[in-house]
Design a protein around this nucleic acid. Sequence first.
DNA 1: GCTGCTTGCCTAAGCATCGTAGGCAAATGC
DNA 2: GCATTTGCCTACGATGCTTAGGCAAGCAGC
Lengths: 190, 190
Amino acid sequence: MARAGLTTERLVRAGAELADEIGFEQTTPAELARRFGVKTASLYSHLKNAHDLKTKIALLALEELADQVSAAVAGRAGKDALTAFANVYRDYALKHPGRFAAAKFRLDPETAAASAGVRHAQMTRAILRGYDLAEPHQTHAVRLLGSVFSGYVGLETAGGFSHSAPDAQESWTEILNALDTLLRNWPTTS
Amino acid sequence: MARAGLTTERLVRAGAELADEIGFEQTTPAELARRFGVKTASLYSHLKNAHDLKTKIALLALEELADQVSAAVAGRAGKDALTAFANVYRDYALKHPGRFAAAKFRLDPETAAASAGVRHAQMTRAILRGYDLAEPHQTHAVRLLGSVFSGYVGLETAGGFSHSAPDAQESWTEILNALDTLLRNWPTTS
DNA sequence: GCTGCTTGCCTAAGCATCGTAGGCAAATGC
DNA sequence: GCATTTGCCTACGATGCTTAGGCAAGCAGC
């Protein structure tokens, strides 16, 4: 019988595509094996188990997203950097919903520490270099930005803003504008 | 053999507790049956299937959360209402992580339309009555608030802010303060 | 082109879950 | 006490995850 040419790499890449098509939750060894026209058991020389597959897709997604954000933010500052970061993040999520869901997959601590997740945190903080925010306000602002981005895109991909005016793009633009204003006038006393 | 006294109501309530203990994803008919000391098949006269169980837990969580938020917001306005809403929301999520995850469960459109989810939207909008925001800015602000709340709490429950200073409570307080400032000075031109 | 080794995908099997169908016994009404 | 209803059961089929071991495809050397 002809061999399918399975490798961990190919399986993970195909798994990411599968996630975008049918959802991250539904991306399982059985489904992946069907896609390659092989038996499920054949995957287990390349993947430890179902959890390992999901973890590797999550790491791929984090990496891709960090690369794209990094490229978009390079050479920009202030509001320019803010919107570049935000738009790349959102576009990635809308274009790759399965990978985006994968990026939220709960990794165990040491895997997370070695993942591209840390680059996301660094880049978020880098954006704030264009604004005049001292610690601890800077950390609070980093957390706000992370919350807005992941929250907005999470709600949008979950269908939260469909079937209601104004459309999601318009809100997104205005929210970024509002965040820029807020960062330039961050209240340091309550 | 003595009967266990299963009802849909009891199963869903137990399912919600189970979700808080072991996670929403792990809350399945098999696990629930074990908890009641009955066979899995016995659940199927009270629940259509596994998806039905999850849907009903999600509806319960949305209802509980809407009730608590509603009680907290009543009689308050402006920043007072904002922080009351936000704190109840966050406290619920931290106290009931499984239910909170359930509240994010993707419902089919007509179920969602009949759920307490619409009360959440109404209450978020009610908060903005204390701020002077005309449409379409009001809708954009509603979406921002929803994004921040769900985003922040989502990241926090996922462990995003643990093991790093300052602690999550401090950021939360400052972020609510910043949001209040932003809502009082919402930029209406870019 | 043959021989033998490596490696990749296979079959077989165990175990768990979801969900359906039909049976028996406990609760309820008279 | 008897009949009916109802609730939980056993039995089963389908599907998925995962391990163990087998066989043949592909490559190395001659």
